[in-house]
Amino acid sequence: MNSIWPLAPGRLGGSRISPIWLVLVAVIVAAALVSDRFLTSYNIASVLQQGVITGIVALGMTVVLIGGQLDLSTGAIVMMAAVMALLIGPDGTLGITLAVVLPILAGATVGVVNGLAVYRAGANSIVTTIGMQFFLIGAVLATVSGRHVRATAIGDAFTALAQARPLGIPFPVFIFAALVIVLAVVMSSTVFGRHVYAIGGDADASRRSGVNVVRTGIATFAISGALAATSGVIIAALVGHLDPTGVGGYEFPALTAVVLGGTRLTGGVGRPIDTVAAILVIAIITNVMTILDYQYPIQLLVQGIVLTGAVAYYNWRGEA
């Protein structure tokens, strides 16, 4: 086993570098060779913008998967949070604060419900969270009667959350970077982080050695829900109004990134920082395909192939 906690998996910079970083370098070089439009500052900003929204979702799913479970309700949480933020009417200090805080709290609450079902009742996390996904999508569409959502008023400070560009870099990139650093430290250097690796590695053994499996597990889902909601709030700030049926489907590219980044599907192994590299790889591939005029269906097909290939590769390497 190459994953004996606490030696290998969590230590930032303390262990070997994941092959995903080599893939990232290769993809950047290939992209620059394929298209001369790739390395323009405008295009790089748009790659980052796209990558960050999926990336924040993927960070939360990484934590859940290190604990050994999957969260596929994240796409619906993104949609719920975006709609909530707009319905609250993010104007004025109070309005903006509520429009940021309430959706994130709601996302965390959904995560707690998922976590209770999975860790308290022992339900299969994939089917549970898909059930939750459809429940949420139905609930949100019922609330807005399936109509386009517009905010009554939007303050400049709120739109700045997504649209400001200090140093020419989109502001969400800074949010993402901050979240990555916090999560990397939490996972590698706190008791909670060690416990998440422990329950993902062997839930029974960690229970016997005194880890509160249920509480730790519920916390991983709460983190995932809160992060997905953060992405939703950023989307709301980015577009200002939206068609709720058009927001969704983030869970699949995010899952692909988590797996591509080397988080093991059975849990116990993985690092948030490696998910970041995988997110960039996927964002770049998607971007280049868009530049080369390969539409969404082909991108979907390629994502499916990347997911299968990544799982097959890590399975093959892990069992050796």
Binding site: A117, V118, A121, G122, A123, N124, V127, T128, G131, F134
Partner: peptide, 10 residues
Amino acid sequence: LFALVVADGA
């Protein structure tokens, strides 16, 4: 579906 899976696990 959510309730069914919870019942299945419980």
